[in-house]
């Protein structure tokens, strides 16, 4: 009954809304429209991929790209407004802001990627282990991850950074400690969903060892959604890392890092706003590029958005 009438009631408006040109006798078919959509995802992928690659390259070659030594102080030109010589001005020690922003990309972007890579690998391995073995180890590890998930993230990271002391490395450790459970959960649920699959049983019957089954067959089949999550996490982690640095729990001066640079510039907001503006803009743009890239990769990985 539901099937008879409701299907019709639901299907019809759908035809009208989403597929305006399709009528019963229409010569226009869904394929083209879907093709165009897939094209746009691809275009976005290329654009944001290139932008992200550009940021990444910039952070790798930051030493070569910076016009001045980012740590070179020159009190004579302290708090200079942007000019031809110093495109983004200078800070209160007279350091060139452009050079510092470029140099800061190493600490900000590079450490973020490292952090995301670490939590992805650790979280996935724990999740697969739990999902595959089940029983007690699973219960214990998942309760531990519950505990981590229950903490307000930044507060916990502050506590860890406080205990271990400041510094970029400790900030990364702190953020890794609160971020792995998300990956463990995804990997675990994916593993549980795949564990009873016939192809894994077939691999067992082919005489493959458990390690081989997991790394050769299971992981390639569950890694998609995990990688998408890590892509989406790059932006978030960049913000949190900058946030910790801003609070003085991340990068230590004189290391150029966008978060700590903003923190430095707080007192100059009224007198020399460009000092706060450039690292802020750098964070904003990088986070946006990586978030949009993550979104695009998620769309691309989801076959429903690619083809009908």
């Amino acid at each position: 009954m539901r099937q008879t009438f409701l299907k019709n009631r639901e299907k019809r408006p759908l035809q009208k809304q989403g597929h305006k040109s399709v009528t019963m006798y229409s010569g226009m078919y869904g394929g083209r429209r879907h093709g165009r959509r897939a094209g746009s995802v691809k275009t976005r992928l290329i654009v944001f991929g290139l932008l992200a690659a550009f940021l990444l390259l910039g952070s790798v070659f930051s030493a070569q790209l910076a016009p001045y030594d980012p740590d070179l102080q020159n009190l004579e030109i302290a708090r200079a407004a942007p000019s031809a010589a110093h495109l983004l001005g200078t800070d209160r020690f007279g350091r060139d802001m452009l050079s510092r922003v470029i140099a800061g990309s190493r600490a900000s972007i590079f450490s973020t990627l490292l952090l995301v890579a670490v939590i992805t690998v650790i979280g996935t391995l724990i999740g697969v282990f739990c999902g595959w073995n089940g029983k007690r180890a699973d219960a214990v590890l998942m309760r531990i991850s519950d505990i981590f998930l229950a903490f307000p993230g930044l507060v916990f990271a502050m506590a860890v950074a406080g205990v271990l002391g400041g510094g970029l490395h400790n900030a990364i450790v702190a953020l890794a400690a609160i971020s792995w459970p998300k990956y463990a959960r995804i990997a675990r649920s994916q593993t549980l969903a795949q564990r009873e699959s016939a192809y894994l049983k077939a691999a067992k019957l082919a005489g493959s060892s458990t390690t081989k089954i997991i790394f050769k067959h299971l992981l390639p089949n569950i890694i998609g959604p995990i990688l998408v999550t890590s892509m989406l996490d790059i932006g978030t982690m960049m913000m949190e890392l900058a946030g910790l640095s801003f609070l003085g729990l991340g990068a230590k001066p004189p290391t150029a890092e966008w978060g700590s640079m903003m923190s430095d510039a707080r007192s100059l907001m009224t007198t020399a706003p460009w000092v706060a503006f450039s690292p802020g803009a750098a964070i904003f743009l990088s986070v946006m590029v990586f978030n949009l890239l993550g979104d695009t990769i998620r769309d691309y990985a989801d076959p429903r958005s690619r083809d009908f």
């Binding site: 299907k11 019809r12 989403g18 597929h19 019963m24 006798y25 078919y29």
Partner: peptide
């Protein structure tokens, strides 16, 4: 007959 071909199907 029921008009349940979905958006990509039609009686041609």
């Amino acid at each position: 007959a029921m008009g349940l071909l979905g958006p990509s199907g039609a009686v041609t």
